[in-house]
Nucleic acid binder design. Structure first.
Lengths: 223, 223
DNA sequence: TGTACATCAGTGAACGCGCGTTCACTGATGTAC
DNA sequence: TGTACATCAGTGAACGCGCGTTCACTGATGTAC
């Protein structure tokens, strides 16, 4: 075997004709790893991505027009994972509509805690926030949000939640949960109570309507 | 008059003995202006600050150990302004305790909208967020937060709000309002409803306890 | 009152770095005839 | 089957920039004696 070829860290064979897309996927994967490891998108350099993939840095430009697009592509992909995770949590929560909404909120927070850097980039960074051109309707149609809005609608139909605009109700809840998460991420040294406790308080205040409010101490859903 | 001296933009006379602090203030002011104009702390270079002040860039290091400290000093000063603004709004709101809390929230949002860049740096940026070493008790002792927590306590004593930990109650409200503001700042293209409408919805859900909840459409405080 | 000295409040030039991106080029692979 | 050509999938080197910061130095101002 040729020792020179293996001495270069991460050396990879050139893709065959028609397999150019494979490098694209490897670039996305390496970028995602580096974002998580280095803690921000600015700290991820195109050179570092190329080195991890085992290609030259100009090769990135065969697949992405610039660095910002690459970063955004990574975060967008991972946000779709969040949608999946929320959907799964709601499905696992059983038939109680309030249970399902609470599960969705906790799954959202769980994703943010597990992927703090990506959450920050997608939700707290103006640079990439400006790249997203969503309308509220688009947002409600995305994975995760769809199930939430549907469930809110069902709860309103069933008389469990006060009748209101389900998208707006969802957004208000979303903003409140996001506030908790983003405070935690932005102020790591602040001695906030445990995250899920704050989230439960927040849910207590948002998920009621026709039925009596749960006690201040408890987060148990109404029967 | 010497024409050469005036041809240099922003030229300033050297401070006299014992007046070195004046340059420090001018640096803070110029930095604050540039942060607001350029839209982020990264875009503000030490050279640009020096040019606006009319001094050399090494002169900054006579007053601040590094750039991060300078930026943080600016934001901290402006956050104290926010406290003052909240206090004033609460005083102007009259005697009704719920009115006062609603006024505080709207003043908070108003400050964030008027100083979006500083709000982002102080509340949504991990770099500078990590510099802040507050405890919740410290936070509650700061301008703005003090009045809010006191008012919450009074409202609980008066039986207007359900009895609970006033600091924790304040933090929960704060997080929810912050969530709305930070979504607006991070996702400028998202077609959210008007900010004060979202804030009123949020307050409706947080500012109740012993008295009946205000209707879904209205934001009017209870009598 | 004179003068040597200390200090304050700076300056001008440069260091050194890493970064995103571009440019000209290459070599393996496939294709037309 | 042979061969000229086109294309794909990259590479190596360099451009050009701006930045935070340091270093050696200066000149005005005040102070001790």
């Amino acid at each position: 075997m040729p020792s020179h070829a293996t001495s270069r860290a991460g050396a990879r064979p050139r893709a065959r004709r028609g397999e150019g897309e494979r490098l694209r996927d490897e670039i996305l994967e390496a970028t995602a790893e580096l974002i998580a490891e280095l803690g921000s998108a600015e700290k991820v350099s195109t050179r570092a991505v190329a080195q991890r993939v085992g290609c030259s840095s100009p090769a990135l430009y065969l697949h992405f027009p610039d660095k910002a697009t690459l970063i955004y592509a990574v975060c967008e992909a991972q946000f779709n994972q969040m949608g999946t995770r929320i959907d799964k949590a709601m499905a696992d929560a059983g038939g109680d509509l309030i249970d399902r909404l609470r599960a969705a909120a906790h799954a959202y927070v769980g994703f943010a805690v597990d992927h703090p850097v990506q959450y920050r980039i997608m939700m707290m960074d103006t640079t990439y926030g400006a790249l997203a051109q969503h309308t509220l309707v688009d947002l409600a149609a995305e994975a995760g949000m769809t199930s939430i809005v549907t469930t809110i609608q069902e709860a309103m139909d069933a008389g469990i939640l006060e009748r209101d605009d389900p998208v707006l109700t969802g957004v208000t809840m979303w903003a409140a949960i996001h506030g908790i998460v983003s405070l935690r991420l932005a102020k790591p040294n602040l001695d906030l109570p445990p995250l899920h406790e704050l989230v439960d308080r927040c849910l207590d205040r948002n998920l009621w309507g026709m039925q009596p409010r749960p006690g201040a101490g408890g987060a148990q859903p109404p029967l």
